[in-house]
Design a binder for these strands. Structure first.
Lengths: 227, 227
DNA sequence: CGGTAATCTAGAACAAGTTTCAGAACTGAT
DNA sequence: ATCAGTTCTGAAACTTGTTCTAGATTACCG
Protein backbone atom coordinates (compact mmCIF):
# COMPACT_ATOMS: atom_id res chain seq x y z
CA UNK A 1 0.00 0.00 0.00
CA UNK A 2 2.24 2.79 1.18
CA UNK A 3 4.78 1.77 -1.34
CA UNK A 4 4.85 4.70 -3.65
CA UNK A 5 7.69 7.09 -3.44
CA UNK A 6 6.89 8.95 -0.30
CA UNK A 7 9.29 11.68 -1.19
CA UNK A 8 6.81 14.49 -1.12
CA UNK A 9 7.53 14.64 2.55
CA UNK A 10 10.73 12.68 2.82
CA UNK A 11 13.94 14.46 3.64
CA UNK A 12 15.59 15.79 0.54
CA UNK A 13 19.00 16.55 1.98
CA UNK A 14 20.55 16.97 -1.42
CA UNK A 15 19.04 20.35 -1.82
CA UNK A 16 19.50 22.84 0.96
CA UNK A 17 15.82 23.60 0.49
CA UNK A 18 12.78 21.87 1.92
CA UNK A 19 13.11 20.63 5.47
CA UNK A 20 15.99 22.33 7.22
CA UNK A 21 18.12 19.50 8.50
CA UNK A 22 18.93 19.25 12.13
CA UNK A 23 22.53 19.45 13.19
CA UNK A 24 22.92 15.70 13.58
CA UNK A 25 21.37 15.16 10.20
CA UNK A 26 23.72 17.63 8.62
CA UNK A 27 26.59 15.83 10.31
CA UNK A 28 25.38 12.47 9.01
CA UNK A 29 25.13 13.85 5.53
CA UNK A 30 28.68 15.17 5.73
CA UNK A 31 29.98 11.88 7.04
CA UNK A 32 28.30 10.04 4.21
CA UNK A 33 29.66 12.34 1.56
CA UNK A 34 33.10 12.13 3.07
CA UNK A 35 33.03 8.35 3.14
CA UNK A 36 31.78 8.30 -0.41
CA UNK A 37 34.64 10.46 -1.61
CA UNK A 38 37.14 8.42 0.38
CA UNK A 39 36.00 5.10 -1.02
CA UNK A 40 35.76 6.54 -4.50
CA UNK A 41 39.30 7.85 -4.27
CA UNK A 42 40.44 4.35 -3.62
CA UNK A 43 38.71 2.24 -6.20
CA UNK A 44 36.46 4.42 -8.29
CA UNK A 45 32.82 3.76 -9.00
CA UNK A 46 32.88 0.10 -8.06
CA UNK A 47 34.59 0.70 -4.74
CA UNK A 48 31.73 2.83 -3.52
CA UNK A 49 29.54 0.09 -2.12
CA UNK A 50 26.42 1.16 -0.39
CA UNK A 51 26.77 -1.24 2.53
CA UNK A 52 30.30 -0.10 3.15
CA UNK A 53 29.40 3.56 2.82
CA UNK A 54 26.67 3.07 5.39
CA UNK A 55 28.77 1.09 7.81
CA UNK A 56 31.79 3.32 7.49
CA UNK A 57 29.64 6.39 8.01
CA UNK A 58 28.07 4.91 11.14
CA UNK A 59 24.65 4.90 9.61
CA UNK A 60 22.12 2.20 8.80
CA UNK A 61 21.70 1.18 5.20
CA UNK A 62 18.12 2.36 5.20
CA UNK A 63 19.22 5.75 6.43
CA UNK A 64 21.80 6.06 3.71
CA UNK A 65 19.04 5.42 1.20
CA UNK A 66 16.86 7.99 2.83
CA UNK A 67 19.57 10.60 2.37
CA UNK A 68 20.59 9.50 -1.11
CA UNK A 69 18.00 7.44 -2.91
CA UNK A 70 20.54 5.63 -5.06
CA UNK A 71 24.24 5.14 -5.54
CA UNK A 72 24.16 7.50 -8.47
CA UNK A 73 22.43 10.14 -6.39
CA UNK A 74 25.12 9.74 -3.79
CA UNK A 75 27.96 10.10 -6.25
CA UNK A 76 26.40 13.03 -8.04
CA UNK A 77 25.99 14.73 -4.68
CA UNK A 78 29.63 13.94 -3.99
CA UNK A 79 30.56 15.58 -7.24
CA UNK A 80 28.47 18.59 -6.39
CA UNK A 81 30.37 18.85 -3.16
CA UNK A 82 33.77 18.57 -4.81
CA UNK A 83 32.84 20.98 -7.55
CA UNK A 84 31.93 23.59 -5.01
CA UNK A 85 35.36 23.32 -3.45
CA UNK A 86 36.95 23.53 -6.85
CA UNK A 87 34.90 26.55 -7.81
CA UNK A 88 36.12 28.39 -4.75
CA UNK A 89 39.69 27.33 -5.33
CA UNK A 90 39.59 28.44 -8.95
CA UNK A 91 37.94 31.68 -8.03
CA UNK A 92 40.86 32.53 -5.79
CA UNK A 93 43.37 32.28 -8.60
CA UNK A 94 41.69 33.61 -11.69
CA UNK A 95 43.33 32.75 -15.01
CA UNK A 96 46.15 34.97 -16.14
CA UNK A 97 45.46 34.99 -19.85
CA UNK A 98 43.82 37.81 -21.74
CA UNK A 99 41.83 36.06 -24.42
CA UNK A 100 38.57 34.59 -23.10
CA UNK A 101 39.18 31.28 -24.83
CA UNK A 102 42.63 31.01 -23.36
CA UNK A 103 41.28 31.87 -19.92
CA UNK A 104 38.69 29.12 -20.13
CA UNK A 105 41.24 26.63 -21.39
CA UNK A 106 43.60 27.52 -18.58
CA UNK A 107 40.89 27.12 -15.98
CA UNK A 108 39.69 23.81 -17.34
CA UNK A 109 43.22 22.49 -17.47
CA UNK A 110 43.63 23.45 -13.84
CA UNK A 111 40.49 21.54 -13.01
CA UNK A 112 41.74 18.65 -15.07
CA UNK A 113 45.00 18.54 -13.17
CA UNK A 114 43.05 18.47 -9.93
CA UNK A 115 41.06 15.52 -11.22
CA UNK A 116 44.27 13.77 -12.20
CA UNK A 117 45.36 13.84 -8.60
CA UNK A 118 42.41 11.62 -7.71
CA UNK A 119 41.67 9.72 -10.86
CA UNK A 120 39.53 7.12 -9.14
CA UNK A 121 37.38 9.76 -7.55
CA UNK A 122 37.05 11.44 -10.91
CA UNK A 123 36.05 8.14 -12.41
CA UNK A 124 33.32 7.53 -9.86
CA UNK A 125 31.88 11.00 -10.15
CA UNK A 126 31.94 11.31 -13.92
CA UNK A 127 30.62 7.81 -14.50
CA UNK A 128 27.76 8.49 -12.12
CA UNK A 129 27.06 11.77 -13.81
CA UNK A 130 26.76 10.34 -17.28
CA UNK A 131 24.98 7.21 -16.15
CA UNK A 132 22.34 9.12 -14.26
CA UNK A 133 18.84 8.67 -15.56
CA UNK A 134 15.90 11.04 -15.37
CA UNK A 135 15.36 10.45 -11.69
CA UNK A 136 18.59 12.28 -10.99
CA UNK A 137 17.99 15.14 -13.39
CA UNK A 138 17.68 17.88 -10.79
CA UNK A 139 20.93 16.94 -9.12
CA UNK A 140 22.80 16.51 -12.38
CA UNK A 141 21.45 19.83 -13.47
CA UNK A 142 22.88 21.45 -10.40
CA UNK A 143 26.27 20.03 -11.24
CA UNK A 144 25.89 21.29 -14.77
CA UNK A 145 25.05 24.78 -13.58
CA UNK A 146 28.10 24.73 -11.34
CA UNK A 147 30.28 23.79 -14.27
CA UNK A 148 28.76 26.51 -16.39
CA UNK A 149 29.41 29.00 -13.62
CA UNK A 150 33.05 28.00 -13.49
CA UNK A 151 33.44 28.51 -17.21
CA UNK A 152 31.60 31.80 -17.22
CA UNK A 153 33.75 33.00 -14.37
CA UNK A 154 36.82 32.15 -16.34
CA UNK A 155 35.50 33.89 -19.42
CA UNK A 156 34.71 37.10 -17.66
CA UNK A 157 37.43 39.61 -18.33
CA UNK A 158 39.91 40.25 -15.56
CA UNK A 159 38.82 42.93 -13.16
CA UNK A 160 39.35 46.34 -14.64
CA UNK A 161 39.43 49.71 -12.97
CA UNK A 162 36.04 50.23 -14.59
CA UNK A 163 34.55 47.11 -12.97
CA UNK A 164 36.63 46.84 -9.88
CA UNK A 165 34.59 44.46 -7.76
CA UNK A 166 33.11 41.13 -8.76
CA UNK A 167 29.97 41.64 -6.80
CA UNK A 168 28.22 38.27 -7.24
CA UNK A 169 24.81 39.92 -7.48
CA UNK A 170 26.11 42.14 -10.27
CA UNK A 171 27.94 39.91 -12.73
CA UNK A 172 30.36 41.76 -14.92
CA UNK A 173 28.11 41.39 -17.94
CA UNK A 174 25.30 39.01 -18.71
CA UNK A 175 26.56 36.52 -21.28
CA UNK A 176 24.92 36.71 -24.66
CA UNK A 177 22.91 33.78 -26.02
CA UNK A 178 25.72 33.09 -28.47
CA UNK A 179 28.18 32.92 -25.61
CA UNK A 180 25.92 30.56 -23.74
CA UNK A 181 25.75 28.31 -26.76
CA UNK A 182 29.50 28.36 -27.00
CA UNK A 183 29.79 27.50 -23.33
CA UNK A 184 27.45 24.58 -23.84
CA UNK A 185 29.70 23.21 -26.53
CA UNK A 186 32.74 23.66 -24.33
CA UNK A 187 31.00 21.88 -21.50
CA UNK A 188 30.00 19.01 -23.75
CA UNK A 189 33.57 18.67 -24.91
CA UNK A 190 34.85 18.82 -21.37
CA UNK A 191 32.58 16.05 -20.15
CA UNK A 192 33.09 13.80 -23.09
CA UNK A 193 36.83 14.30 -23.14
CA UNK A 194 36.95 13.38 -19.46
CA UNK A 195 35.11 10.18 -20.23
CA UNK A 196 37.51 9.19 -22.96
CA UNK A 197 40.38 9.85 -20.58
CA UNK A 198 38.83 7.92 -17.70
CA UNK A 199 38.04 4.95 -19.88
CA UNK A 200 41.63 4.88 -21.06
CA UNK A 201 40.86 5.72 -24.66
CA UNK A 202 42.52 9.12 -24.67
CA UNK A 203 45.72 10.29 -23.07
CA UNK A 204 46.06 13.27 -20.83
CA UNK A 205 47.76 15.04 -23.70
CA UNK A 206 44.85 14.30 -25.99
CA UNK A 207 42.37 15.74 -23.51
CA UNK A 208 44.51 18.84 -23.29
CA UNK A 209 44.45 19.15 -27.05
CA UNK A 210 40.71 18.70 -27.20
CA UNK A 211 40.06 21.31 -24.56
CA UNK A 212 42.41 23.75 -26.17
CA UNK A 213 40.91 23.06 -29.55
CA UNK A 214 37.38 23.81 -28.50
CA UNK A 215 38.42 26.90 -26.57
CA UNK A 216 40.45 28.16 -29.48
CA UNK A 217 37.96 27.47 -32.21
CA UNK A 218 34.89 28.66 -30.45
CA UNK A 219 34.37 32.38 -30.50
CA UNK A 220 33.91 33.64 -26.98
CA UNK A 221 34.39 37.35 -27.52
CA UNK A 222 31.52 39.41 -26.30
CA UNK A 223 30.19 42.37 -28.22
CA UNK A 224 32.15 45.32 -27.00
CA UNK A 225 29.39 46.84 -25.06
CA UNK A 226 30.33 49.65 -22.78
CA UNK A 227 27.43 50.41 -20.49
CA UNK B 1 47.78 -3.23 -14.76
CA UNK B 2 45.47 -4.68 -17.37
CA UNK B 3 46.39 -8.20 -16.38
CA UNK B 4 43.04 -9.87 -16.48
CA UNK B 5 42.87 -10.42 -20.17
CA UNK B 6 43.61 -14.11 -20.12
CA UNK B 7 41.31 -14.39 -23.05
CA UNK B 8 43.80 -14.39 -25.82
CA UNK B 9 42.19 -17.59 -26.97
CA UNK B 10 38.64 -17.04 -25.80
CA UNK B 11 36.00 -16.40 -28.42
CA UNK B 12 35.95 -12.72 -29.27
CA UNK B 13 32.86 -12.62 -31.42
CA UNK B 14 32.74 -8.86 -31.18
CA UNK B 15 35.55 -8.51 -33.62
CA UNK B 16 35.33 -10.36 -36.87
CA UNK B 17 38.95 -11.24 -36.27
CA UNK B 18 40.53 -14.06 -34.30
CA UNK B 19 38.71 -17.38 -34.43
CA UNK B 20 36.44 -17.47 -37.46
CA UNK B 21 33.04 -18.27 -36.04
CA UNK B 22 31.15 -21.24 -37.34
CA UNK B 23 27.83 -20.63 -38.98
CA UNK B 24 25.83 -21.61 -35.94
CA UNK B 25 27.94 -19.35 -33.79
CA UNK B 26 27.43 -16.48 -36.14
CA UNK B 27 23.70 -17.17 -36.02
CA UNK B 28 23.74 -17.22 -32.22
CA UNK B 29 25.56 -13.96 -32.15
CA UNK B 30 23.02 -12.39 -34.49
CA UNK B 31 20.13 -13.70 -32.44
CA UNK B 32 21.64 -12.26 -29.29
CA UNK B 33 22.24 -8.87 -30.80
CA UNK B 34 18.75 -8.84 -32.23
CA UNK B 35 17.21 -9.71 -28.89
CA UNK B 36 19.32 -7.10 -27.21
CA UNK B 37 18.12 -4.41 -29.59
CA UNK B 38 14.53 -5.56 -29.25
CA UNK B 39 14.54 -5.49 -25.47
CA UNK B 40 16.40 -2.19 -25.45
CA UNK B 41 13.84 -0.68 -27.79
CA UNK B 42 11.20 -1.52 -25.27
CA UNK B 43 12.57 -0.36 -21.99
CA UNK B 44 16.04 1.02 -22.46
CA UNK B 45 19.09 0.01 -20.48
CA UNK B 46 17.21 -1.56 -17.60
CA UNK B 47 15.00 -3.68 -19.83
CA UNK B 48 17.99 -5.51 -21.25
CA UNK B 49 18.29 -8.21 -18.64
CA UNK B 50 20.90 -10.80 -19.25
CA UNK B 51 18.72 -13.75 -18.23
CA UNK B 52 15.98 -12.60 -20.54
CA UNK B 53 18.37 -11.93 -23.41
CA UNK B 54 19.74 -15.43 -23.02
CA UNK B 55 16.39 -17.13 -22.77
CA UNK B 56 14.84 -15.14 -25.56
CA UNK B 57 17.81 -15.86 -27.79
CA UNK B 58 17.61 -19.55 -27.10
CA UNK B 59 21.00 -19.61 -25.49
CA UNK B 60 22.26 -20.50 -22.04
CA UNK B 61 23.27 -17.68 -19.75
CA UNK B 62 26.84 -18.91 -19.68
CA UNK B 63 26.94 -18.85 -23.45
CA UNK B 64 25.68 -15.30 -23.57
CA UNK B 65 28.53 -14.35 -21.26
CA UNK B 66 30.99 -16.16 -23.44
CA UNK B 67 29.92 -14.11 -26.41
CA UNK B 68 29.61 -10.83 -24.54
CA UNK B 69 31.50 -10.73 -21.27
CA UNK B 70 29.21 -8.15 -19.71
CA UNK B 71 25.99 -6.31 -20.25
CA UNK B 72 27.93 -3.25 -21.29
CA UNK B 73 29.89 -5.26 -23.82
CA UNK B 74 26.63 -6.54 -25.21
CA UNK B 75 25.09 -3.11 -25.54
CA UNK B 76 28.20 -1.57 -27.03
CA UNK B 77 28.26 -4.37 -29.58
CA UNK B 78 24.61 -3.66 -30.25
CA UNK B 79 25.47 -0.04 -30.85
CA UNK B 80 28.27 -1.04 -33.18
CA UNK B 81 25.77 -3.08 -35.14
CA UNK B 82 23.23 -0.28 -35.34
CA UNK B 83 25.88 2.27 -36.25
CA UNK B 84 26.98 0.16 -39.16
CA UNK B 85 23.44 0.13 -40.51
CA UNK B 86 23.20 3.85 -40.01
CA UNK B 87 26.50 4.47 -41.72
CA UNK B 88 25.30 2.63 -44.80
CA UNK B 89 21.97 4.41 -44.75
CA UNK B 90 23.62 7.79 -44.45
CA UNK B 91 26.10 6.95 -47.14
CA UNK B 92 23.29 6.34 -49.56
CA UNK B 93 21.87 9.82 -49.15
CA UNK B 94 24.81 12.15 -48.72
CA UNK B 95 24.05 15.57 -47.32
CA UNK B 96 22.89 18.20 -49.77
CA UNK B 97 24.63 21.21 -48.30
CA UNK B 98 27.79 22.78 -49.64
CA UNK B 99 29.59 23.99 -46.54
CA UNK B 100 31.36 21.17 -44.70
CA UNK B 101 29.99 22.29 -41.35
CA UNK B 102 26.46 22.36 -42.68
CA UNK B 103 26.93 18.93 -44.20
CA UNK B 104 28.06 17.48 -40.91
CA UNK B 105 25.23 19.15 -39.05
CA UNK B 106 22.73 17.82 -41.54
CA UNK B 107 24.09 14.31 -41.23
CA UNK B 108 24.15 14.34 -37.46
CA UNK B 109 20.62 15.66 -37.34
CA UNK B 110 19.56 12.80 -39.57
CA UNK B 111 21.20 10.38 -37.21
CA UNK B 112 19.57 12.14 -34.31
CA UNK B 113 16.14 11.77 -35.86
CA UNK B 114 16.79 8.08 -36.34
CA UNK B 115 17.65 7.80 -32.66
CA UNK B 116 14.48 9.65 -31.75
CA UNK B 117 12.48 6.94 -33.41
CA UNK B 118 13.81 4.46 -30.86
CA UNK B 119 14.60 6.56 -27.85
CA UNK B 120 14.81 3.60 -25.49
CA UNK B 121 17.28 1.85 -27.71
CA UNK B 122 19.29 5.04 -27.94
CA UNK B 123 19.22 5.28 -24.17
CA UNK B 124 20.52 1.78 -23.68
CA UNK B 125 23.30 2.15 -26.20
CA UNK B 126 24.52 5.57 -25.19
CA UNK B 127 24.35 4.83 -21.48
CA UNK B 128 26.37 1.68 -22.03
CA UNK B 129 28.85 3.57 -24.13
CA UNK B 130 29.56 6.23 -21.56
CA UNK B 131 29.43 3.85 -18.64
CA UNK B 132 31.91 1.47 -20.16
CA UNK B 133 35.12 1.07 -18.23
CA UNK B 134 38.57 0.18 -19.49
CA UNK B 135 37.68 -3.44 -20.08
CA UNK B 136 35.46 -2.34 -22.94
CA UNK B 137 37.91 0.11 -24.46
CA UNK B 138 38.52 -1.76 -27.70
CA UNK B 139 34.83 -2.09 -28.44
CA UNK B 140 34.06 1.49 -27.50
CA UNK B 141 36.93 2.57 -29.65
CA UNK B 142 35.45 0.76 -32.60
CA UNK B 143 32.21 2.64 -32.10
CA UNK B 144 34.15 5.85 -31.88
CA UNK B 145 35.95 5.16 -35.11
CA UNK B 146 32.64 4.42 -36.80
CA UNK B 147 31.27 7.73 -35.61
CA UNK B 148 34.35 9.51 -36.83
CA UNK B 149 33.98 7.83 -40.19
CA UNK B 150 30.40 9.03 -40.47
CA UNK B 151 31.42 12.59 -39.74
CA UNK B 152 34.37 12.49 -42.10
CA UNK B 153 32.15 11.09 -44.81
CA UNK B 154 29.77 13.96 -44.33
CA UNK B 155 32.59 16.47 -44.39
CA UNK B 156 34.04 15.25 -47.61
CA UNK B 157 32.94 17.46 -50.45
CA UNK B 158 30.23 16.15 -52.73
CA UNK B 159 31.53 14.09 -55.61
CA UNK B 160 33.01 16.28 -58.29
CA UNK B 161 33.80 15.42 -61.88
CA UNK B 162 37.38 15.50 -60.73
CA UNK B 163 36.85 12.88 -58.06
CA UNK B 164 33.98 10.94 -59.50
CA UNK B 165 34.04 7.79 -57.44
CA UNK B 166 34.28 7.47 -53.67
CA UNK B 167 36.54 4.48 -53.81
CA UNK B 168 36.73 3.49 -50.12
CA UNK B 169 40.37 2.56 -50.47
CA UNK B 170 41.08 5.99 -51.89
CA UNK B 171 39.42 8.56 -49.65
CA UNK B 172 38.85 11.88 -51.33
CA UNK B 173 41.55 13.56 -49.29
CA UNK B 174 43.19 12.61 -46.04
CA UNK B 175 41.87 14.94 -43.35
CA UNK B 176 44.40 17.30 -41.84
CA UNK B 177 45.30 17.08 -38.16
CA UNK B 178 43.37 20.28 -37.58
CA UNK B 179 40.32 18.74 -39.16
CA UNK B 180 40.70 15.66 -37.01
CA UNK B 181 40.84 17.83 -33.92
CA UNK B 182 37.71 19.60 -35.04
CA UNK B 183 36.00 16.29 -35.63
CA UNK B 184 36.93 15.18 -32.14
CA UNK B 185 35.26 18.23 -30.68
CA UNK B 186 32.17 17.63 -32.78
CA UNK B 187 32.06 14.05 -31.64
CA UNK B 188 32.42 15.04 -28.01
CA UNK B 189 29.57 17.47 -28.40
CA UNK B 190 27.46 14.90 -30.17
CA UNK B 191 27.87 12.31 -27.44
CA UNK B 192 27.40 14.67 -24.56
CA UNK B 193 24.41 16.37 -26.15
CA UNK B 194 22.81 12.99 -26.64
CA UNK B 195 23.28 12.24 -22.97
CA UNK B 196 21.64 15.46 -21.87
CA UNK B 197 18.73 14.68 -24.15
CA UNK B 198 18.37 11.09 -22.98
CA UNK B 199 18.47 12.09 -19.35
CA UNK B 200 15.74 14.60 -19.97
CA UNK B 201 17.86 17.64 -19.23
CA UNK B 202 17.85 19.03 -22.76
CA UNK B 203 15.11 19.20 -25.33
CA UNK B 204 15.38 17.95 -28.87
CA UNK B 205 15.53 21.56 -29.96
CA UNK B 206 18.41 22.23 -27.62
CA UNK B 207 20.37 19.29 -28.98
CA UNK B 208 19.76 20.62 -32.47
CA UNK B 209 21.09 23.99 -31.43
CA UNK B 210 24.17 22.47 -29.82
CA UNK B 211 24.98 20.39 -32.87
CA UNK B 212 24.49 23.29 -35.20
CA UNK B 213 26.53 25.52 -32.94
CA UNK B 214 29.52 23.27 -32.89
CA UNK B 215 29.34 22.63 -36.63
CA UNK B 216 29.02 26.31 -37.36
CA UNK B 217 31.70 27.54 -35.01
CA UNK B 218 34.29 24.94 -35.76
CA UNK B 219 36.30 25.51 -38.86
CA UNK B 220 36.14 22.47 -41.06
CA UNK B 221 37.44 23.89 -44.30
CA UNK B 222 40.36 22.02 -45.70
CA UNK B 223 43.31 23.74 -47.27
CA UNK B 224 42.49 24.06 -50.92
CA UNK B 225 44.87 21.46 -52.06
CA UNK B 226 44.51 20.34 -55.62
CA UNK B 227 46.51 17.21 -56.17
C1' DC C 1 7.10 15.81 31.53
C1' DG C 2 4.18 12.82 28.19
C1' DG C 3 2.70 11.61 23.73
C1' DT C 4 2.95 11.37 18.94
C1' DA C 5 5.05 11.40 14.64
C1' DA C 6 9.10 11.22 12.16
C1' DT C 7 13.62 9.19 11.96
C1' DC C 8 17.01 5.72 12.66
C1' DT C 9 18.76 0.86 13.29
C1' DA C 10 19.45 -3.94 12.36
C1' DG C 11 18.66 -7.31 9.56
C1' DA C 12 16.18 -10.03 6.28
C1' DA C 13 14.62 -10.24 1.69
C1' DC C 14 14.58 -9.32 -3.19
C1' DA C 15 16.52 -8.23 -8.02
C1' DA C 16 19.70 -8.48 -11.58
C1' DG C 17 24.59 -8.90 -13.10
C1' DT C 18 28.13 -12.25 -12.93
C1' DT C 19 30.53 -16.67 -11.88
C1' DT C 20 30.87 -21.47 -11.49
C1' DC C 21 30.33 -26.35 -12.42
C1' DA C 22 29.01 -30.90 -13.99
C1' DG C 23 27.51 -33.02 -17.78
C1' DA C 24 25.55 -33.07 -22.74
C1' DA C 25 26.41 -31.77 -27.51
C1' DC C 26 29.26 -30.54 -30.99
C1' DT C 27 33.72 -30.00 -33.82
C1' DG C 28 37.74 -31.40 -36.14
C1' DA C 29 41.24 -34.72 -36.94
C1' DT C 30 42.62 -39.33 -37.31
C1' DA D 1 33.37 -44.12 -36.45
C1' DT D 2 36.10 -42.68 -32.59
C1' DC D 3 38.52 -39.84 -29.63
C1' DA D 4 40.01 -35.33 -27.53
C1' DG D 5 39.03 -30.81 -26.97
C1' DT D 6 36.02 -27.22 -27.17
C1' DT D 7 31.48 -25.25 -26.71
C1' DC D 8 26.87 -25.22 -24.92
C1' DT D 9 23.33 -26.16 -21.40
C1' DG D 10 20.96 -25.97 -17.05
C1' DA D 11 21.06 -24.70 -12.67
C1' DA D 12 22.88 -23.06 -8.52
C1' DA D 13 25.67 -19.76 -6.11
C1' DC D 14 27.56 -15.33 -5.28
C1' DT D 15 27.66 -10.09 -5.34
C1' DT D 16 25.90 -5.74 -4.73
C1' DG D 17 22.18 -2.34 -5.35
C1' DT D 18 17.67 -1.70 -3.50
C1' DT D 19 13.44 -2.49 -0.67
C1' DC D 20 11.00 -3.82 3.36
C1' DT D 21 9.82 -4.53 8.27
C1' DA D 22 9.68 -4.34 13.19
C1' DG D 23 11.29 -2.21 16.88
C1' DA D 24 14.37 1.50 19.20
C1' DT D 25 15.45 6.42 19.25
C1' DT D 26 14.78 11.10 18.60
C1' DA D 27 12.45 15.53 17.77
C1' DC D 28 8.76 18.38 18.48
C1' DC D 29 4.48 20.17 20.77
C1' DG D 30 1.40 20.99 24.24
Amino acid sequence: MGNMTTESKAARPTLPASPPLTERQEARRRRILHTSARLASRGGFDAVQMREVAESSGVALGTLYRYFPSKVHLLVATMQDQLQHMHETLRKRPPSEQDPGARVAQTLMRAFRALQREPHLADAMVRALTFADRSVSPEVDTVSRLTTAIILDAMAPPATPRHPAQDPAHPAAAPTPEQLSAVRVIEHTWHSALITWLSGRASIAQVKIDIETVCRLIDLTSPDRDD
